[in-house]
């Protein structure tokens, strides 16, 4: 599988993401500068975390019109695997590749801490593993997921919610929700299931010494997924 990590000015998790993909797949992903386009044979594209364009205007708003995003959009619409982590998730929302929007965290502060994620299904390219609670950290100020009630029902009914904040035992409680997201949502896919946005950072959870290796399950699932070629 050929993967690519997009770098915007202000991205700051791109190296962590590159290292995670390298460690799990043994292959170095293409680093794609925001002024360029994705290589045509890309199977997986990751928009990493950070503060693209300094979060100016609104999180993800300027990245949306960055040159690279036209090819990302084409890749995603053609069914190519696409992941947005943290700021990457915010960018996917801005582009309309995923439904909903992000609000400022409920506590109004940036929050960096370990969270537990309930995995809702194991039949997607991102979750082909049996563990149902993952220990993965968050680090964001704007991760309070919102979508209008009717749409929320739709994405729930279609099984688009892949990850929810929970207790270590897998219970959904208010205290386990770090930002006030609706239905404790931490990660969702598009209707087709090939585009994933998630606020937690699986690239930060690939080494027990750093707190958890649960992210390896996620990356193994994604990187071992059936490749879908882009036109």
């Amino acid at each position: 599988m050929k993967s690519a990590v997009v770098i915007f000015p202000g991205s700051n998790c791109e190296m962590d993401t590159v290292l995670a993909i390298e460690k799990i797949s043994g292959r170095t992903p293409e680093k794609v500068w925001h002024k360029d386009s994705l290589p045509s044979d890309t199977d997986l594209v990751v928009l990493p975390g950070g503060f693209s364009y300094g979060d100016y205007l609104r999180v993800g708003a300027i990245a949306k019109v960055s040159p690279v995003m036209q090819s990302v959009q084409r890749h995603a619409e053609a069914g190519g695997l696409t992941i947005g982590i943290c700021n990457g998730f915010q960018i996917l929302l801005e582009c309309g590749l995923l439904p909903g929007a992000m609000m400022r965290n409920r506590g109004l502060h940036f929050v960096c801490k370990w969270t537990n994620l309930k995995v809702t299904r194991n039949d997607t390219p991102f979750t082909r593993f049996s563990k149902d609670v993952l220990h993965i950290p968050v680090a964001h100020a704007t991760g309070n997921y919102f979508v209008e009630p009717g749409k929320l029902q739709e994405i729930e009914d279609r099984g688009q919610v892949l990850f929810r904040y929970c207790t270590p035992e897998g219970e959904l409680t208010d205290a386990a929700n770090p930002n006030g997201s609706l239905n404790s949502i931490a990660g969702i896919t598009n209707e087709q299931g090939n585009v994933l946005g998630l606020m937690p950072h699986p690239e930060r959870a690939i080494n027990k010494e750093l707190g958890s290796a649960d992210g390896i399950l996620f990356w193994e699932s994604v990187l071992g997924a059936q490749t879908v070629s882009t036109p």
Binding site: N12, D16, G49, F110, V111, C112, P137, I206, L210
Partner: peptide, 14 residues
């Protein structure tokens, strides 16, 4: 205080 700081980016913090 420290939960307001990203103390994990660069994936080197143990």
């Amino acid at each position: 205080i420290y939960e307001q700081y990203d103390h994990m980016v660069q994936t080197q913090t143990t």
